[in-house]
Design a protein around this nucleic acid. Structure first.
Lengths: 202, 202
DNA sequence: GCATGTAATTGAACACTGTTCAAAAAAGGA
DNA sequence: TCCTTTTTTGAACAGTGTTCAATTACATGC
């Protein structure tokens, strides 16, 4: 068998990516293999190499999709007050990490063997995520862009850290509404702490 | 060849673990294979199975070692004021993550295929880490144990999040002393925010 | 010293993995 | 119809985790 022309290059690309996503979500990263993806779409493993340079490449493109979806969810957040926006961003992020744990983990666990740098496309999207937070923070504080940038990353590190420790069952916090309480302590704490700093400087 | 009796079971165990650690640190997780570990200590791959139940088990034990070392470093921190202690804990953690990036990553990335639960031994050590933070926080705030527990985890999520985003080059913060500034914003912000909350409630 | 049992170690085997590439076959053009 | 181009395969290679019969050396009893 050869040359069936069942699908265009683009269709094959999309098909493979969707199948890979499905395998990733349902059976985890360790089950994500070229042969399984190929079998799922009725092609041979070799065919994937006409559409991806290798499995690493496929993973990067999976991450690109995931980040796309995550960013869309974040950008769909209704911007009300800066504070409620920040809460909504955090909620959305935690919800996404909980709904798609494997895809979300791959976002941080995937590294290329040869070069550790992440593709420029992904980098841009991450920067635009920080811009969302920075925007909300600039409405709250009159500090320099540098200070705002630091604070946005600190706030996000906190949210991300909560997501990661929870995802790995490493929180050991056996309380009701633990997540809500943590988000409250983080956001409320940081915002009022930074406000206080502004008052002191004035 | 068979039955050389060069090493006792315990020696073989220790030898293999050290070799695995070396490979992990120098060549990354992906290079960590039974055959490479075995070759490094002059044994065959099958021999490892008399000392570890499988590669997963070896990884858990590697993580146990890493967590041991990390906890020792944290417990060696001179406890001065609560605040300086918290700073020192955070510094120590970030320094450890920077010095042993691969070992530190394995701590969070390793999951068994069959069961996702982490061994009880590791869980205990993580809880004792949180206890360090809780102790420092109880000296600062008169809140309930539940509130302290939440705050300890929030603070640590922040420190951990910074470590992880930095380790994956996902911070995009091109400033001098970025790490110091972030730690300042996190710890100073949270502590003064939580203090303010206490004043309000009083 | 010698047989016997026991414990350690290997190497081959099996079923996987990513990746490459000659060969085959179908589509499209002249 | 012939020829070229493109698509697709399947075999091959080197690597992986894991199991297990076979082998060898040590320890014990006589």
């Amino acid at each position: 068998m050869a040359r069936r022309n069942d699908h265009t290059r683009e269709e094959l690309h999309e098909l493979a990516l969707s199948a890979a996503e499905e395998i990733l979500q349902t059976r985890g990263v360790q089950a994500l293999s070229t042969r399984k993806v190929a079998a799922a779409i009725g092609y041979s493993a070799g065919s994937l190499y006409s559409v991806f340079s290798n499995l690493d490449d496929l993973c990067w493109q999976l991450n690109s999709r995931t980040l796309n979806e995550l960013m869309a969810a974040l950008k769909a957040v209704k911007v009300a007050s800066p504070k409620t926006s920040l809460y909504a961003y955090a909620d959305t992020y935690l919800a996404f990490a909980a709904r798609y744990p494997e895809r979300w983990r791959l976002l941080f666990e995937h590294r290329s063997s040869d070069s550790n740098r992440l593709p420029a496309e992904l980098a841009l999207r991450i920067e635009s995520l920080f811009e969302l937070i920075e925007k909300a923070l600039s409405d709250l504080f009159q500090d320099s862009a540098e200070v705002i940038a630091v604070r946005a990353r600190v706030l996000w590190s906190g949210v991300h850290g909560i997501a990661q420790l929870r995802s790995g069952d490493k929180l050991f916090l056996h309380q009701a509404d633990a997540e809500r309480k943590m988000l409250d302590a983080l956001i409320e704490g940081l915002l009022s702490g930074w406000s206080l700093e502004a008052e002191r400087d004035a």
